[in-house]
Design a protein around this nucleic acid. Structure first.
Ligand code: MN
Ligand code: MN
Ligand code: MN
Ligand code: MN
Lengths: 218, 218
DNA sequence: ATATATTTTTAGGATATCCTAAAAACGTTC
DNA sequence: GAACGTTTTTAGGATATCCTAAAAATATAT
């Protein structure tokens, strides 16, 4: 396994390759490499049985592939917690360094780090940290676009993208914030939230889809 | 710069390449790669002006090369402090992980880590941590083989080699220990130390050379 | 259904890193 | 200083990763 292959598997996973077939095109855009390089890497991962491949259609992770993706995500997210909590990184700064550290982290290192951080369950964006064995803890979040009007909900996880995180900072939307939905415009139109104090925030459909929430259960 | 090149420069440095010409043979042994690969890497580093090269003689670091070696050592040693102090690694466990982490450490990461660790001056083996600008703090240590009989001295630094560290553990020799020299056999023979409590320890000349000390000044 | 546009694959190269085996240079020993 | 042993370099390959350009397959639109 090389950093390259690991990043490729992670990209497939993040595009939904654990449950559906991902086109080369999507990987080309996501990884910013040539189409030829994607075809080539596909062949390599196929030989190692980490993906299945339907020619001219795309690739899907095998169970081994999914396990590797989860283990890599575990490393990535534990590092993010460390950078955020111990080294004082900002929300939107942690990703880049974690993306490098994840590939040079021995099992010993990750488990010691996990202990040192008191076994965190979520990364700084609310992403759940996979278990040591490569399984995923249960979560009950859903996209903000699926919220019903009236019921109060909490922000549980947001997309780990630097620009998007900056946008949320502008809008003053934070993990754990509590809102109710007051308006949804049709045809994937803007969504308006209201804080308990009555402040209103309007965001687009695409942005809302990058925010995962859960209903408040009291 | 790649991890490979960085390790090569570090190897040259550790063999004394900051002040003398290092033969290919030494690098072959140290890095466990073929002689052909050393010749090849020499050519690459020469082109980047990180080393000077005397054909059939060997290589020496330029000032740029030395600066890179020091900055890498800084990263390596700061990571070692972290692994040792915060993650509970043993003395002889820190090196392997630090050797990987050093190549994926942004300046931001290292400086934040340095702050988090309260700006340590030495790594867990007593190695001095180079300054941010690539310069070396002054130290006044010398090999145990050069100690005079009678004068008390302290263990300041030991060779960062797993087997050697295990040997020191067996002999119960630790950083900061205070001894006096009671016997030195001629022809690079064994050296005998005595603790303040009168316990005697005898070690060979080669091992003694891997231990740096300084006289106690009270 | 055919033309057009898009996507994927193949073909042919480039670079970094590694290797083994042979040739050349150097050092040592009598 | 010739012979032998050691070290370095050169020659020729291998693999991983990347690329561009052309060819093949698939999807879309009329
Ligand atoms: Mn991230
Ligand atoms: Mn990565
Ligand atoms: Mn070390
Ligand atoms: Mn290293």
């Amino acid at each position: 396994m090389t950093p390259n292959k690991e990043n490729f598997i992670k990209a497939i996973y993040e595009l939904g390759g654990d449950h559906s077939v991902i086109s080369n095109k999507k990987l080309v855009n996501n990884l910013s490499i040539s189409a030829a390089s994607v075809t080539e890497m596909n062949a390599r991962l196929l030989k190692e049985k980490l993906i299945s491949h339907v020619p001219y259609r795309g690739v899907k992770l095998t169970s081994s592939g999914i396990r590797i993706a989860h283990q890599l995500k575990r490393k990535h997210r534990i590092w993010e917690v460390f950078l955020f909590e111990k080294l004082g990184y900002d929300w939107n700064e942690v990703h880049a360094d974690a993306d490098l550290l994840e590939h040079v982290s021995s099992d010993l290192l990750i488990e010691r780090l996990n202990d040192f951080l008191d076994e965190p369950k979520f990364d700084p964006h609310g992403g759940v940290i996979p278990n040591k064995d490569g399984s995923l803890p249960e979560t009950s979040t859903f996209p903000l676009t699926d919220v019903g009007t009236g019921k109060p909900f909490k922000i549980k996880e947001v997309d780990d993208d630097k620009e998007f995180l900056n946008y949320l900072l502008e809008k003053d939307i934070q993990l754990g914030d509590r809102y109710t939905l007051t308006d949804v415009e049709p045809f994937d139109g803007p969504i308006t939230l209201e804080t308990p104090e009555g402040r209103q925030i309007t965001i687009g459909h695409k942005a809302a889809f990058k925010i995962l929430v859960d209903y408040v259960t009291e």
